[in-house]
Amino acid sequence: MNHCEGCNGCKIDEKLEKIAKKYKNVEGGIISALHEVQDTYGYISSTAQKYLSKELNVPMSEIYGIITFYSRFSLVPKGKYNIQVCMGTACYVKGSEKVLNRFKEKLGIKEGETTSDGKFSIESVRCIGACGLAPAIVINEEVYGKMDEKKVDELIEKYSKM
């Protein structure tokens, strides 16, 4: 598993060292450490896993088990623009499935996948708490509410140019 050697996210840089140091002696700190790695790099590389395993003294198997258990952690990088379509009940009742399908159709990828140019990825997520704006989506922290198929097309166009 050396595929990510040399890629920026995987080097043991200062940031990773700092994270490991911070949680080294915290009881149950591995999940908090993984949160920070995920937020810093957008995913958790095998190099980062190995390093945390050594520093925090948690077996690799356990770390892998944790990463794959929690949906917030990812083993692969996400697209430059990560589109999260809310599939909470309130949004579902207001037609979020149509919105999700339109994104999939337009970008030619499925949930959990990234377009070949690395620009977009799609995820379906649980309630983002913007139920008043249902159906709602999030693109890199920016929330868009009252979505329909036409707005999907407009957003893809907008972000394609960015």
């Binding site: 009881e27 149950g28 999940i31 908090s32 088990g65 944790i66 258990f69 929690y70 949906s71």
Partner: peptide, 26 residues
């Protein structure tokens, strides 16, 4: 504070405690 990581079952009390302990939330 301890942050959840996107698993519904972690709302269940014993799973939640496993998760705070840094384990899979079973």
């Amino acid at each position: 504070l301890r942050l959840g990581a996107g698993a519904f079952v972690c709302g269940e009390e014993t799973a939640l405690m496993n998760s705070i302990e840094g384990k899979r939330g079973e």
